[in-house]
Design a protein around this nucleic acid. Structure first.
Lengths: 203, 203, 203, 203
DNA sequence: TATGAATGAGTCTTCATTCAT
DNA sequence: GATGAATGAAGACTCATTCAT
C-alpha cells in the first residue's frame, strides 16, 4: 500500500507564497487542511477558528470568510479526511487488482496501510466523528463501502463485508494499542475468511 | 448475553428524593451517571459542567464541588462506562463457560451483546475517548483485554487477540451502520477463526 | 516639583467618542489607564476584568481582547504608574539641576511632590505590588534608582541612597498619615544628610 | 534587637494535639496565625477561608465558625501581625533603654531588626494593607508611633518622627531590594539626625 | 475582497457563606 | 459546639460570529 506518498496530507505548512493572498483557492485548501490536521490531533470538539487560522497561517478573518460557520469548516475538514482515506484506498485497489485478490497480498496491503499512522488516524478520526454525530456517518461509510467494493472483485459480498469489518477492528486496534497486528496474523484471518466455506446461506 | 438487564446503567434520572441533598454518595453517583450518559450521547468533547448538572438535576455548583476539574469528572464518567462494559463482559464470561467455548455459542453471545445499543455505545464511546486522548487508552483496553481473557479459556492467545479485534470491528460497525451483523455472519467468522489452523507460527 | 500638572494621568474618563470603537490605540490606553486608576485606589489584589471594563467604559470583552491575561493587564497598569512616576521625577530633575543640588531646594521639590496625592499614591501602589510579587520589584526600583541618580549629581552615591531611602519613608508616611512632613522637617533632614560628614568610609 | 527568638510567629504547624478539637482557644489562635502567615506571603487579596483552613490544618467549617466573615478573619490576622511587630519593638525598647539612646546603638538595633526577614515582612504587609484600606491605618501606625515613643526618650518629638520615617523607608528598602542598608549607613543617618541641630523651630 | 476589531454568550473554576446534621 | 455539604455569585478566560473599514 502506498502510504501517504501521494497524499500531501497533514504535513504542509510552508507552501510557497502562493498560498497566501491572491490565491483564494489555495487559501481555502490550506484552511481545510489545517482543520483536518486538527481533527486528527485533537478531535472535533476542540477545533476553533483561531486554532485553524494559526495552523493554516492565515488571518483569523479568513476562516470565517471562507466558511460561514464553524460547523461548515469542520465538515470540510472531515470531508478532506474522507477524500484522503479514499485516495489511499484507490491505490490499494490498483495493487489488489494485480494480485488477483490473493489473501496474502491483501493482508500485506492492509499491513502496509497500518504502518501509515497518518492514514490510520484519519480513519479513526472519521469514525469518532461518525459515532458522535449520526449525520456524519456517510463519511465514515465511504471507507467501509470502499473496502467492501474492493473485496467484491474477489469474493462474495457477505464475505467482503466481514473482512471489511475485521479491517475496521484492525484499524481501531492499531490506534489504541501501541503496535498493530502482525502480517502473519492478518494473513491468517484473510485466508480463513476468504476460503470457500460450507454454508453459503448467510443473510 | 445478559444485556443491560442487570445494569440499571445510563438510564436513571428519577431516583427518589433520597438522591438529592445530604446524601453525598448518591449525589456523586448521579453526577457521574449523568456524565456517562452525556459521554455516550455527545462524546467527551461536548460535555460541560452545566450539561451534567442539568442532566443530573443538581445545581451547577454540585458538579464542581464533587470534582475539582472537568477532566476529573469526565474521567469518572468514562470509568463508569468501562465498569459497565466490564460487568457485561463478566456475564458473558459466565455463559461462555457453560458453553465450553463453542464458537456458535460465542457468536450468539456477541450477537446478543450487539442488540444492547446502550452497551455498544458505551464501548465505542470509550474507544473515541481513547483515540483522542492517549492517557485514556487503558480504559478502552479493559474491554479488549477482557475479551481476550475470556477467549483464552478456549483458544490460543493469538487467536483470542484476533477474535477480539474482530469483535471491536463488529462493535464499530454496529454503531455506525444501522443494523449489526447477523448471527450467521458472526458464527461463520468465529468458526473460521477458532478452527484449528495449519500454520501455528504467528508472530 | 511639577506634580501631575503635565500628566493628564489617572483622571481621564470622558474622552471624546474617539476613544471608543475603531481606535484600538486609544482603547488600549483607556483600559490601561483604568487599570492604573484601580491599582491606586484598591490595590493590585482587587482588580478584576469587570471593574476595569466598567471604569474604562468599554465592554467586558475588550479587556480580555487586548490583554490575554489579567496579570498582563495588571502589569500594563503598573507600568503606566511607573512611567508616570518617572515622568514626574524627570521634571524634578530639571528643576534640581538649576538649583545646583541645594538641599533646601531639593527638600522643597520633594515637598511639592508630596502635595500631589496622585503621584504619591502611584508610588506607594508600586511598592505594594513589589512587596507582594517579587517579579515586579524592578518597577518599584525605577523610582528609587531614579531618585538616586538624580541626587548623584550633587552628592556621593552612598548619601544619595540614604536620602532616597528617606524619601521612600516620607512617601509611605504621607500615604498612611493624614498629612505629610513639613517643609522644614524635610529641609532639616536633607541638610543634615547631605552635609559633608566626618567618616566617609561606609560600605 | 532580639529578632524572632521570642516570637513564635509564623512558623508553627505541628503543635501538639492540643491545637485541634477540644481547645477552642488554641484553635482560634492557629487560624489567626495561619491567616497572618498568608497575609505576609500573599497579601490580603489572596486569602481565602479554604487556604487558611488548610494552612491551619483545621476543617473548613472552623474558619467560618470562629469568624463570621472573611474580613473579620483578615483583620484578626493583621492584628496579630501588629502585635508581633509591637512585641519586637518592646524588646528593642528595653535594649535601647540600657543604651541611653546612643545613636550607634539604635542603629545597631534597627540593623538587627532588619535581619529578621519575618518581622520586616510583617511590617511591610501591614503598610500594604493600610495603604489599600484606610480603616486599617491605625494598625500600621502602631509601629510608627511605637518607634516615635521609643525615640522620644532620647530626643525631641520632631526628630523622633523624622527618624521613624527614615526607619520606615529602611524597612521598605529592605523588602524590595535584596540586601538592607549597612550598619555604617544606618549609624551615619542616626547620628546626623539626632545630633543637636541649629534651628529647633520646626512644625 | 479581506481582515482585524469587537463583544456577548458561555466555559471552567473558586469561594464566601449558609445550614443540616 | 463543629463540620462537611451545598450553592449561587462572581471571576478569568475563550470564542463564534458580526461588522466597519
Amino acid at each position: 500500500m502506498p502510504g501517504p506518498s501521494t497524499t500531501p496530507s497533514s504535513t504542509g505548512s510552508e507552501q510557497p507564497a502562493s498560498r497566501s493572498r491572491r490565491d483564494p483557492q489555495a487559501r481555502r485548501r490550506a484552511i481545510i487542511q489545517a482543520a483536518a490536521d486538527l481533527l486528527i490531533e485533537e478531535g472535533g470538539g476542540n477545533i476553533t477558528h483561531r486554532r485553524v487560522a494559526e495552523r493554516a497561517e492565515v488571518p483569523l478573518g479568513a476562516t470565517t470568510y471562507y466558511f460561514k460557520t464553524l460547523d461548515e469548516l469542520r465538515e470540510a475538514g472531515l470531508e478532506l479526511l474522507a477524500d484522503e482515506v479514499e485516495e489511499v484506498l484507490g491505490d490499494v485497489r490498483r495493487e489488489a487488482a494485480e494480485a488477483q485478490g490473493d489473501p496474502e497480498v491483501l493482508a500485506r496491503l492492509l499491513h502496509d496501510y497500518l504502518a501509515d499512522r497518518e492514514s490510520v488516524r484519519a480513519d479513526t478520526a472519521l469514525y469518532c466523528a461518525a459515532i458522535q454525530r449520526p449525520e456524519l456517518r456517510p463519511l465514515a461509510m465511504r471507507w467501509f463501502d470502499g473496502m467492501v467494493e474492493l473485496l467484491s472483485d474477489w469474493t462474495d459480498p457477505a464475505t467482503a463485508r466481514l473482512v471489511a469489518t475485521f479491517a475496521d477492528g484492525v484499524s481501531l486496534h492499531a490506534t489504541v494499542h501501541d503496535e498493530p497486528l502482525s502480517l502473519a496474523d492478518l494473513t491468517r484471518v484473510f485466508t480463513a475468511l476468504m476460503r470457500p466455506h460450507p454454508a453459503e446461506e448467510e443473510k
